[in-house]
Amino acid sequence: MTNTIKSVSGTGIPLMLDDIDTDRIIPARYLRCVTFDGLGDHAFEDDRQQDPRHPFNASKFSGATVLVAGRNFGCGSSREHAPQSLMRWGIKAVIAESFAEIFFGNCCSLGVAAVTAPRDELDKLAAAVEADATLEVVVCLENLTAKAGDLCIPVKMPSSAREALITGEWDYLGQLLSASCAVKEHVLTVPYLNGFSA
């Protein structure tokens, strides 16, 4: 499967809060499911109910593709339901000050571009998107920039994750499967699988 992701473009949605945990992105009661279908409807469900002005309630942002977020986005649980719900809501890229690791890894597995940018630049981007919800945001993984109107900010992504998206090799399962012989040999070197005498 090759599915190269060199850039993501679309309108933006700002959510400049820090330490947004995965329980907030998708409350646990929506994890009572055996498929990820339908999770998009429940992204930020509780926050949205408590705050009518939550960006995910605003119709002007309803078609957004690029989420602009704060520090430590996606902390907490390992639930892939979180990036799944954002993805199914329509998000294809997240630009944040920083990410929690498992959330970042989950985004990689799903082909969601998760890039980081300095806070002051993010604040500018968020303000631009807030001011004009129709503004097109372009996240370019090749140049490592995010552009919106006159604004062009530098973004970062670990080279391994970036490489995978650009080359389309983010189908890790296929890659991992291709090493099954090496894995079989490896098993023979693991002490606890060989009576502790390997």
Binding site: E80, N106, S109, Y172, L173, Q175, L176, L177, V183
Partner: peptide, 19 residues
């Protein structure tokens, strides 16, 4: 801790990718 795509990878290959 890992996500569900990783769970599938580990089930199928007993390996996963990590930095």
């Amino acid at each position: 801790g890992i996500g569900t795509s990783n769970v599938a990878q580990v089930l199928a290959t007993q390996t996963m990718f990590l930095s």
